[in-house]
Design a protein around this nucleic acid. Structure first.
Lengths: 339, 339
DNA sequence: AACAAACATGCAACTGGTTGCATAGAAATT
DNA sequence: AATTTCTATGCAACCAGTTGCATGTTTGTT
């Protein structure tokens, strides 16, 4: 355990016979310092292996240069892409990032929010847990003036900006596609309707049915946790139905896939007996046989935009931006499960 | 943007007519403070909404109560489980966690390491990027006395503890299983042999062949980046081979799956023409038809043990522990792809 | 040359919690 | 009652940058 003391601006100042104020300003590229002095200080700092102590800086500035991120889970390619996009922007802007996962639990989300609050992050990005009832645990940030920004699974909290896709339209497209292929007895499997993503998809689904003049039997709506087990359960219920559906629209791919697997085990043919559509374009949608019709949206792009919006807000002097909601594009991907 | 100043120990001290030293000690449950005083201070602190300023504390202590984590990617269920396990232990011990992904790039790993170093994490957990040549970028931590701990994809760096599975034995088991089913012309698809996981699996594979008295033709070893595209490429190469293999052992599931998909498109029957085995027990191994034989190991457990080992090291006074390597259990899971 | 304006640098207080050492008062001992 | 021992608390320096204001120096103007 070596114990060489850290190099401080005091050491640099002493060595060059200048004040710490000058060193501090030079290191931050303050305009009042001569180029010559700056150069000298920067060189000496590098030479001595100087590294700023961020705590002293944070203590004084009351800024941490750190952003917080809370996501439901870190286990999907989509989320990995989102985070890669966020990291790219965040690192280029010189911020650090603290990531935490709520594991779809409101309780854990609250704890995570509290931790990030205590860590005094300068800004927060959130995609809500599935079962979060109220976003009130984010209010302390807002009260303190720390910008909070939601993406994908968003909350309606004050004027927090949101980055989303048009879930309503996407679901409309999926449903219209199914109807256009001649399927008429549709069921919809989704998650907590308190989440915008599931509520909007459901409404889009209903809208498309309505547009085609088809009535929807509310018993054909399955509200689940969209887990793999839920997919298996839904399959069991479908098998028990007298009037079996001819198409199933599930609000995410992994649940759709487990449902398909369970049905196939009972010799249901897909899409001949029952067609399927999912949502997210997970890799498994291209692994399952038949490949799954789904909706693609770009995680990397969503991450970049989310982070950029937050950073813009942080660096603008007036907090008066009125960007409320950014909608990024999506794409319906038609595969064999619905042909 | 509300601007109520934060409550400090000075405010508490003033209100109760005690010194900040007493407040500080009371809040940290220092034995020198009377229960009565402690109680009074704790109550007042809660009442005033006091929140410790971690920067001031970190600045003084030169400790951050924060641990760093660098992983190759955040996109697998395995990694999500590892992180959940780490978070559980870390949070219970009152530490914070900064997570970053190297995206399998040594350069990004170096940048991440540097960032975490600058953030003065108290300890670091690492699973190496696939193409990392040398772990020297972690040496600054060691020099400074910050414990570094590797898991899964480990490095041999000084006396850093490691948490792994017995990749050699697991690969041996997989290979023996294939051989016992009568397959004799095996190929092995793996990643950078500089990574212990791939080197050990390869050696285990070789050992099993040797035990069964089978020679291995080095041209049947495919070193790739184990991506999905790599799986497709390998499939193309297999199709061009004169003496086609009768079994393929791939060092991860996602590459195995994409290879299987590509081969099936060319009407190769699995396992009749070619059997397959993967590694990791990703969900896709249960989605692909036929389901993929693979090796399971528990991410949550690995995460917990990794974090616990690090925290033990941090809280023990003597840095003299000699735990070098912890091996956790794995399990061969036989499915239809090799029957 | 005299004076003003512009510029570069330094002084010192400030951020908020921590801790070695000193001390006042209480408790224990004689 | 006097002295010693113990204990709870306070003092003040410390951690490492930051920044408003003061000051000294250079440059520009007439």
């Amino acid at each position: 355990m070596t114990n060489k003391r850290e190099v401080t601006i005091y050491d640099i100042a002493r060595k060059l016979n200048v004040s710490t104020a000058t060193v501090s300003r030079a290191l931050k590229n303050h305009p009042a310092i001569t180029e010559k002095t700056k150069k000298k200080i920067l060189e000496t700092a590098a030479e001595m292996g100087y590294q700023m102590n961020t705590f002293a800086s944070s203590l004084r500035n009351n800024r941490t240069n750190t952003l917080g991120l809370i996501v439901p889970r870190l286990n999907s390619m989509f989320m990995s892409d989102v985070i890669a996009g966020i990291e790219k922007v965040v690192n280029e802007a010189g911020y650090n990032l603290i990531i935490s996962q709520s594991l779809e639990s409101e309780e854990k989300e609250k704890v995570n929010a509290r931790t990030l609050f205590n860590n005094r992050v300068d800004g927060l990005m959130v995609s809500l847990a599935s079962n979060t009832q109220s976003p009130e645990h984010f209010r302390p940030f807002i009260k303190k003036g720390t910008p909070v920004l939601f993406f994908d699974r968003v909350a309606d909290l004050d004027d927090c900006p949101t980055v989303v896709i048009d879930n309503f339209k996407a679901a409309c497209e999926v449903t219209s596609h199914l109807l256009s292929k001649g399927y008429t007895n549709l069921i919809h499997v989704t998650g907590n309707l308190a989440r915008n993503v599931y509520r909007d998809r459901y409404n889009g689904f209903l809208q498309a049915l309505k547009d085609h003049g088809i009535d929807f039997n509310p018993s054909n709506l399955f509200i689940t946790d969209l887990s793999r087990d839920a997919g298996t359960d839904v399959a069991a219920k479908i098998l028990e139905m007298d009037a079996k559906p001819d198409a199933v629209f599930v609000a995410n791919d992994s649940c759709a896939v487990s449902c398909m697997i369970a049905l196939r085990k009972s010799n249901i043919r897909i899409p001949d007996d029952i067609a399927f559509a999912g949502f997210n374009n997970d890799y498994i949608s291209r692994v399952i046989e038949p490949h799954l019709t789904t909706v693609d949206y770009k995680g990397f792009e969503m991450g970049q935009i989310t982070a950029q919006t937050l950073i813009d807000r942080l660096s603008s002097k007036q907090g008066s931006q009125i960007t409320r909601s950014i909608v990024i594009r999506h794409e319906l991907i038609i595969r064999e499960s619905s042909l």
